[in-house]
């Protein structure tokens, strides 16, 4: 089975979020970058597990510049067979999807896995865009994935619960918590990653029709109003009369 995993780079979850250039650019100063957690923990690891039981290969694809190479090597260290980087500076999710599709369209992948969302842009839509562009079925927010012959059985989150669905491969899906357990790369993996192929291909012209004008941080919270532990009823009164939320 040929598996493609879409990997993006994200600031470490503890990063201080700040902006520069008149609030138009994310301030990368001192920021540690990681593989986007959903892509690494769930999409990549489940892809590897399926390969290990069913045979085949796991390729990762990343849209972005050479600054992505360290996180791509991390994905290779965890166990991907080879990686592709599409050398483009994507405008938005639509553009990311078109770039990935331009590469993936005649490669015959049986499964295309994305993360549930990137922790920097939180859109959660790239997989669906890829699926529509490739005219493939798409299953969002998958928490369990099994493949038997040409049929994938997937558990997904839907409003008010979960559903078990069946779909013929090839299929695109987004991976959420539950799909797999995080894997820590070992020394052998890290050594092997250095020599695994990381192919750089040229991007296609941008298809994005949106642009970020500026960023803003949320307004600072006022000080917390502390209520004495002996006077819990006062808290309930404040929530009812002052905050008017209960």
């Amino acid at each position: 089975m040929k598996i493609l995993v879409c990997i993006s780079k994200a600031p470490d979850t503890t990063s201080r979020i700040a902006f520069t250039d008149g609030d138009t650019k994310f301030d990368e100063n001192g920021v540690q970058f990681i593989v986007n957690p959903y892509d690494e923990w769930y999409a990549l690891v489940r892809g590897l597990e399926l390969k290990e039981t069913l045979g085949g290969s796991v390729t990762t694809v990343t849209v972005g510049g050479a600054d992505n190479d360290p996180v791509i090597r991390k994905a290779l260290a965890i166990g991907a067979d080879n990686a592709v980087r599409i050398d483009a500076d994507p405008a938005d999710s639509f553009d990311v999807a078109s770039q990935i599709v331009s590469y993936a369209k005649d490669q015959g992948f049986d499964l295309v896995l994305t993360g549930k969302e990137t922790i920097n842009y939180n859109s959660g839509v790239t997989g669906a865009l890829i699926a529509e562009m490739l005219d493939m079925p798409y299953v969002a927010l998958a928490t369990k994935l099994d493949v038997d012959g040409g049929t994938a059985t997937i558990t997904r989150e839907v409003p008010g619960g979960t559903e078990v669905v069946e779909v013929a491969t090839p299929v695109v899906l987004s991976a959420a918590k539950g799909m797999a357990e995080q894997r820590i790369p070992n020394m052998r993996g890290i050594m092997a990653a250095r020599t695994k192929p990381l192919e750089v291909v040229a991007g296609v012209p941008s298809t994005g029709q949106t642009s970020i004008v500026s960023y803003a941080l949320p307004p600072a919270k006022g000080d917390v109003k502390l209520v004495d532990a002996e006077n819990v009823a006062e808290l309930v009164r404040l929530l009812h009369e002052e905050a008017k939320v209960i």
């Binding site: 639509f94 865009l129 969002a140 997904r156 949106t210």
Partner: peptide
């Protein structure tokens, strides 16, 4: 959960500018 599927798929079909 549903909008995350329908909106992007529709955006591709309409070749629209799309923000989620």
């Amino acid at each position: 959960e549903t909008g995350k599927v329908v909106a992007p798929r529709a955006a591709v079909r309409l070749n629209a500018g799309f923000v989620a």
